[in-house]
Design a protein around this nucleic acid. Structure first.
Ligand SMILES: [Zn+2]
Ligand SMILES: [Zn+2]
Ligand SMILES: [Zn+2]
Ligand SMILES: [Zn+2]
Lengths: 134, 134
DNA sequence: CGTGGACCTTAAAGTTGCTTTAAAGTCAAC
DNA sequence: GTTGACTTTAAAGCAACTTTAAGGTCCACG
């Protein structure tokens, strides 16, 4: 029997996030005391930890819901799990590729400025202003 | 004298984005006709293009405002420009590093599943469920 | 008993950068 | 004069939370 403060401490996440997860349907409605307070058991905290781990891995709330549903039905084939993970990997690789392209362009831009001069001579702003810039 | 549709076509961005930029204070309030319609000149479209380029480079709306303010004061030293760019590069590199760490963890996780089996034997979900997982 | 401080509750708004929708006015052509 | 393509605004929606405001609850100390 933990209060939300204890649960938050154990899961190392803000209380507001726990409430949000409940609202978002990724955690089931918590048991309540007569005072209306939420109370958590070890199970609940493990489930919360599962959510936190999945979120750290970048899964969306919707995907986390799917993963939990799968974890709750152990007899099903794991194909859906693999698919979710594969999609996540592809998404992360895509984001990396985009950011790397961005980094290249930004680094290129950095070399357009050699330091001491007024803005109107700055190659950086010139590149941003120029319609024909690479 | 272009309508918003023409401006959007020339800048290759949705009309709604142009209105949003105006609202967000990154573009000045557009001139209006007697009918209330916005009208744009070549200057305005160049400014819009500047914004679009900066946004493509990942600069926040706030940074774009700063960059425009600098571009409007050509006598100032370009130091502030360099700083904004340097920060942007650092931010992009940080995001790449985080995503690469994520990719590694996800790829690792992929190897925990060899395909055909029920969910309760799946190493992926085991790793997500296990409090002591790497 | 009572009061102060630490806890808990909710609904609602703020964040970022837009897009989408709804309701309504304008314009040009036929 | 009516159709259809344009324009306007305010407001809501998206993702995943965080923050705020206003208000109950609990407990220990005096
Ligand atoms: Zn320079
Ligand atoms: Zn410079
Ligand atoms: Zn497997
Ligand atoms: Zn599997």
């Amino acid at each position: 029997m933990f209060t939300i403060a204890e649960a938050a401490r154990r899961a190392a996440c803000p209380q507001s996030t726990i409430r949000y997860y409940e609202r978002a349907g990724v955690l089931p409605p918590a048991r309540r005391g007569d005072n209306g307070y939420r109370y958590f058991e070890a199970d609940d905290i493990e489930r919360l930890a599962f959510v936190n781990r999945a979120r750290e891995l970048g899964f969306s709330i919707a995907s986390v819901r799917d993963l939990l549903r799968l974890a709750d039905h152990p007899q099903q084939p794991c194909e859906a799990v693999d698919t979710l993970l594969d999609e996540q990997v592809r998404s992360v690789r895509q984001r990396i590729a985009k950011l790397q392209a961005l980094e290249t362009r930004l680094a290129h831009l950095q070399r357009a400025c050699d330091g001491e001069h007024p803005v109107h001579e700055c190659g950086i702003l010139a590149a941003l202003s120029d319609t024909d810039a690479a």
